[in-house]
Design a protein around this nucleic acid. Structure first.
Lengths: 198, 198
DNA sequence: TTAGATAGTAAGTGCTTACTAACAGTTAAT
DNA sequence: ATTAACTGTTAGTAAGCACTTACTATCTAA
């Protein structure tokens, strides 16, 4: 991978995130990358091929894999809090990719659905694994559908990210992120009702 | 509003949801509506004007207003469950609008942000109002940030909808929806831990 | 019967866009 | 110094698109 090629992919990544795939011209990408348009086409035969390269280059899966591989010796609540924060920060780091995923369901449904599926599966399994590892340390409600609960939890996190950082363009501070995650994790484990009132 | 105009708006709504604003041609919309292209332009001077008409015609705010106005005599858990289900079904009814909102952040950021803001504010306030009305019937944890909890709850619902119905194209059955909402509401109030283990 | 509103056909304008052809300049390794 | 790899300039092609012009057909109400 030459530096030029990398520059082009990076420029395309930014442009696609900002204006969408169709809304971005190859001329624009070339200009952003600081190369001529024909250089772009020498590296990528078509705009679609460039799109694919962008998607592969900026995959979020490796980030998630890394998070999943970190071992946690804390108790389960703290572990989940820590992972939730890591996920949130990863989403932010890959904010442009998330924008592309959201805006390209219409134009690249197959590619996007595939990515989204893998993304989902990985987060699901990462969280479920934690519960599996620490199952002796926590007693769950008997009638609980854990898969659904876990799915709901990261949906909460994802939509919260999406709302703030994508739609409202508001970058939360470290402190706000932590408060949010504490609240969400407390809800997951304890709910909002005061103890003893159940 | 003539029948022809209505037909055009409806066709545009479907096309925009399916292929995005830029990805849809006016010819395509006209064909879907069963009118000639020039008729389309007689009613809407520009494609952008048509887009605006679509957004106004298929607003989700009135649906939410209606849900909020229904009075609920049940206890708070049941009320929230009921409202959550109504919201989910409303999202599904307006699935095309949600697709448009997601995919047009890049092309119509201002309009979309405005819509999203109102949507958020309305759901927030609808849920907070319930808690306000029934505050004597429930004792919440002292250190709880209720606004954040409420926001987290409908984020959970929204992202769950988005995941299934938009990305995975899977239409949940009534039963699945109810199981999901029961799980989510139980988590909100009680958490996943077994009682007495806290 | 007539007038006005509504719809259609057909052709076309002007612009943008992905992608190409042909040629020339630059750099680095041998 | 020469070659090979890489990059740039300039111009252009073919297609698609939003939107227009000019004219015609249909229908309803008075």
């Amino acid at each position: 991978m030459t530096a030029t090629k990398e520059k082009i992919i990076e420029a395309a990544y930014s442009c696609f995130a900002e204006k969408g795939y169709i809304g971005t011209t190859t001329r624009e990408i070339a200009k952003t990358a600081g190369v001529s348009e024909i250089t772009l086409f020498r590296y990528f035969r078509t705009k679609a091929a460039l799109f694919e390269a962008v998607i592969n280059r900026y995959s979020i899966l490796s980030d998630l894999k890394k998070i999943a591989s970190e071992n946690n010796d804390k108790n389960i609540e703290e572990t989940i809090k820590h992972i939730a924060k890591r996920i949130y920060l990863t989403l932010r780091k890959k904010k442009k990719l998330i924008r592309i995923i959201l805006s390209e369901i219409t134009n690249h449904p197959n590619e996007i659905t595939e990515i989204y599926n893998k993304f989902l599966a990985r987060i699901d399994s990462m969280l479920l694994k934690i519960f599996e590892q620490k199952k002796e340390k926590i007693e769950l409600k008997e009638n609980l559908n854990l898969q659904l609960a876990v799915r709901g939890f990261h949906c909460m996190l994802f939509a919260f990210f999406q709302t703030n950082e994508i739609f409202l363009k508001k970058e939360l501070s470290e402190q706000e992120i932590e408060e949010t995650i504490n609240t969400f994790v407390n809800i997951l484990f304890e709910g909002i009702k005061k103890e003893g009132n159940k």
